[in-house]
């Protein structure tokens, strides 16, 4: 499938009260690709996502994206006031649109184990349950791009692995681009075609393997043990030479 740019960021600069949040951000997201943004806490990950979605305006620079680009956004958390009575099914219905694919919707409810909590109030759900509901909401209308802000931060390892598999499978099936933000290094690496290492600026970017070897990355995450367990279940479509060049 031909890939076209969906979102292009040019020279993005953001500061709040003379504190620099983001500087010199240039990046392009193409249709169908999975991009992971990693960085420590306070590195401007969430701000960057909001700027890419045009929810916030940068102090400098510009975002180029098609008008009415269909975005599936999964925020880090939502604060539904406890005075608002709202069931999971009602919540999902609010965001339904004409393009919704009923088969995909039912598939997601089953895969993410939402079926048995449909009648529960949103405010009574656990953190992991809310994230799963938000994920269904983000995917169900088949957006052009999924923007996921720490989608698995309240889940256990096996749950996380399942979610990542599901996301990459759906991205592939419907040609949905994915931008995922995480401070969880090893899990996200496996599924992404491109990793961007962010710490107020783009430290380094490239394929997961390349980023792992990058000195900037190592500097940023020194002391972090990167496990090499069964989580890396993907098959490489290329190999690397001794000098770390990609051989296809």
């Amino acid at each position: 499938m031909k890939s076209r740019p969906l979102i292009v960021a040019r020279n993005i600069h953001v500061h709040k009260k003379s504190k620099v949040i983001l500087s010199d951000i240039n990046l392009q997201i193409n249709s169908g690709e999975i991009v992971t943004i990693i960085g420590p806490n306070g590195s401007g990950k969430t701000t960057l996502l909001k700027i890419l979605m045009k929810l916030e305006k940068p102090n400098n620079g510009k975002i180029f994206s098609p008008k009415n680009l269909k975005i599936g956004y999964l925020p880090q958390k939502i604060n539904v006031p406890s005075l608002l009575p709202i069931k999971v099914s009602y919540f999902l219905n609010l965001y339904k649109n004409k393009q919704q694919n009923i088969h995909l919707h039912n598939y997601l409810l089953k895969e993410l184990k939402i079926e048995n909590i449909l009648k529960q109030q949103i405010t009574s759900l656990s953190g992991g349950e809310i994230q799963r509901v938000l994920l269904v909401r983000a995917i169900m209308n088949i957006p052009r791009i999924l923007i996921l802000d720490e989608p698995t931060s309240s889940m256990d390892i096996s749950g996380q692995n399942k979610i990542y598999n599901l996301i990459s499978q759906i991205s592939h099936r419907f040609n949905i681009a994915v931008i995922m933000v995480s401070h969880d290094l090893h899990m996200v690496m496996a599924k992404s075609q491109r990793v961007i290492c962010l710490n107020r600026h783009i430290c380094c970017s490239g394929t997961p393997k390349n980023v792992l070897q990058h000195p900037e990355y190592k500097k940023l995450f020194t002391g972090v043990k990167i496990p090499d367990t069964a989580i890396y279940t993907h098959k490489h479509n290329h190999t690397h030479s001794i000098t770390n060049k990609i051989l296809r």
Binding site: K50, M53, L55, N68, K70, I71, Y73, P75, I78, N79, V80, P81, L84, I86, F91, L94, Y95, I147
Partner: peptide
């Protein structure tokens, strides 16, 4: 209602 739930979520939903 959409705004009460989350303003950004509503805006990203166009």
């Amino acid at each position: 209602i959409l705004r009460t739930i989350d303003k950004d979520l509503a805006t990203s939903f166009n």
